[in-house]
Amino acid sequence: MSTFLLLLVAAAALTTLYILVKGVIGMAQGKDVTGARSQSLMRKRVMWQAVAIIFVILFLLVARGSGN
Rank of each mutant, 00 (worst) to 15 (best):
S2M: 06
I25Q: 08
S2W: 00
R45D: 09
A10S: 14
V46S: 12
L5R: 00
V33I: 15
G30W: 02
G67K: 10
V51L: 07
R43P: 02
L61H: 00
Q39R: 11
V56K: 04
A52F: 03
Q29G: 13
R64I: 12
T16I: 05
V33R: 15
G23T: 04
M1I: 05
V21C: 07
V21K: 04
L8I: 08
L20G: 12
A11G: 08
R37E: 13
K44T: 05
V33D: 14
R45N: 11
F55M: 05
N68S: 15
L14D: 06
V46N: 13
M42H: 06
A63N: 13
G65C: 09
M27W: 04
T15A: 11
M42I: 03
S40K: 13
A12L: 05
T3N: 09
K31S: 08
R37H: 07
A10N: 08
S66P: 00
G35W: 00
R37Y: 12
A10M: 09
A13C: 11
L61P: 01
M47D: 02
F4L: 12
I19T: 05
T34S: 12
I57G: 01
L20K: 13
L58R: 00
F55V: 01
V62F: 03
F4K: 11
V46M: 12
S38Y: 02
V24H: 04
M27C: 14
M47T: 10
A13M: 07
L14S: 11
L8M: 11
F59Q: 14
R45K: 13
A63W: 06
S66W: 05
V9C: 04
L8W: 05
F59C: 12
F55K: 00
K22V: 07
A13Y: 06
A12D: 04
G67A: 14
F59R: 10
F59Y: 14
A50Y: 03
S40W: 06
L20Y: 11
G23A: 07
M42T: 14
G30Y: 02
V33T: 12
V9L: 06
A63K: 09
V56T: 14
A50T: 11
R37M: 12
L5Y: 00
M42V: 08
L7C: 08
L17G: 07
I53V: 14
A52P: 05
L41S: 13
L7P: 02
G35P: 01
D32L: 00
V9M: 03
F55N: 02
R64M: 15
V9Y: 01
R64Q: 07
Q49D: 09
I25Y: 04
A28C: 09
V24P: 01
M27K: 15
V51I: 15
N68G: 11
L41W: 04
T16G: 15
G23E: 03
L17Q: 13
M1S: 09
I25T: 07
I19G: 01
T3F: 10
M42E: 10
I57H: 01
I57N: 00
I25C: 06
T15V: 10
I25W: 00
A50E: 04
F59E: 12
Y18M: 13
L20V: 07
T15P: 05
S2L: 10
I54H: 02
T34Y: 02
V51P: 01
V51W: 03
K22I: 09
T34L: 10
G30C: 03
A52D: 03
G65K: 09
S38L: 10
L5V: 00
